[in-house]
Write a protein that binds this DNA or RNA. Structure first.
Lengths: 219, 219
DNA sequence: CCGGGCCTCAACCGCTGATCGAGGGTTGGG
DNA sequence: CCCAACCCTCGATCAGCGGTTGAGGCCCGG
């Protein structure tokens, strides 16, 4: 028998060994919330695969050790399912303790690494191939081989909206330059590999940039 | 050296710049839960010190970015008070790699224009007068007469954190230049008065900038 | 054919994390 | 002295999350 599929009661006994607070009703609840989707027998009994159990273990661990809300755990699982990888916010800077503590903030709403074809990008951003071409020629959007990252969507959309104000891609070159310089500065500190620290630093510089722009807008 | 002590309303305005969901009643609630203990005037008014504000910032950040329950945050603060560093669990091992998604506050949800004295700015940002002086000499923070805007807090804090990575104010000049150019572009479109449209455009360009930086970070 | 296991669905629950309002004092400017 | 704006406490209330409970009923092995 290659794949033993377990009944809910069996799963319960397995997980009980590791997590004290688990009950049958909780497992059913987690299914109702969309965190696992066990198969069913013809008569409606749940059949849990080894993967399902693994998934439950993930959920219960995240809940117990990180206090994450189910909603967030669900998003993480969704990302994992799509073969994408998310990232965790570190602890805030301790008050009155200026150690270089990590601090995550509004940098990147998804944390998901996306890989899109050109066609997918056009569809996702809802822009014309022409605009995208211009953006590429000015170095505002770059493909990595045949694929574009998720940020390209945001860039393209923003560019499209700006075009409605009469601001064309060629006017946006300075943004590219500024971004390059910013990244250069970051790499000088953290080196050429992308780490947790890289992200934190980027979040910081972006925050700085945003505040600076705000502060310089007319009163 | 007279440390400026802030009333609850002042604290509110300061924290609003950074955290959208904070209210007076929430601040009082957090005191009731034992997360901060501001001093009181003879007549019973709360007086928040710079440390209190920092503590609140820690609480709000931990809540927003790590979804920690207040109970846990309180324990962490207790540990920090005793000179320890709080233990933080990493993400579960299960179905895949590290992760996570902080949320995106938008560009300017504040509404109210903050006006701070130099002392208030120092207290709110928790930075040294020296750092602030340097920032001013490089044009990163500017006073409008005797007062500073709320963005100055964010600028100063970001600069302080960057300093911990060895990035000094003088390295930040290009940010000023970039911000100036960005604002210049915006003003070319919307004119020299600050309107709804100015804000929208600024939000757009900042979004563009952020996405560009992200897209250019090493893979 | 019986008993334990499993099913659904709706109602209920306790806790967290606040919010609200009544009723009333404080402060500062005119 | 007055008024507006601000601040106070305390108790009631609330919404959402994360489940639990129970009624009523089917399924399956011995």
């Amino acid at each position: 028998m290659a794949k033993p599929e377990l009944s809910i009661g069996e799963v319960l006994r397995i997980l009980r060994a590791e997590f004290s607070g688990v009950t049958i009703s909780k497992l059913r609840f987690l299914e109702a919330e969309g965190l696992v989707s066990p198969a069913r027998t013809a008569s409606g009994y749940r059949k849990f695969s080894a993967d399902d159990v693994e998934r439950l273990r993930y959920v219960l661990t995240a809940q117990r050790d990180q206090y994450l809300p189910l909603k967030v755990i669900k998003e993480h699982l969704g990302a994992i399912d799509r073969g994408l990888r998310p990232a965790v916010a570190g602890p805030p800077v301790a008050p009155s303790a200026p150690s270089a503590g990590p601090r995550a903030d509004d940098f990147g709403a998804t944390g998901i690494e996306l890989r899109l074809t050109r066609a997918e990008l056009l569809a996702a951003a809802g822009v014309s191939a022409e605009l995208l071409g211009e953006l590429e020629s000015h170095g505002l959007v770059v493909a990595d081989g045949k694929h574009y990252g998720g940020d390209a969507i945001v860039v393209a959309q923003a560019a499209a909206e700006l075009a409605a104000y009469g601001i064309e891609p060629r006017h946006l070159r300075p943004f590219r330059t500024a971004a390059d310089r910013e990244v250069g500065l970051i790499e000088q500190v953290t080196g050429p590999r992308r780490t947790e620290q890289t992200e934190q630093l980027a979040a910081l510089t972006v925050r700085l940039h945003t505040a600076l722009v705000r502060s310089r807008l007319p009163r």
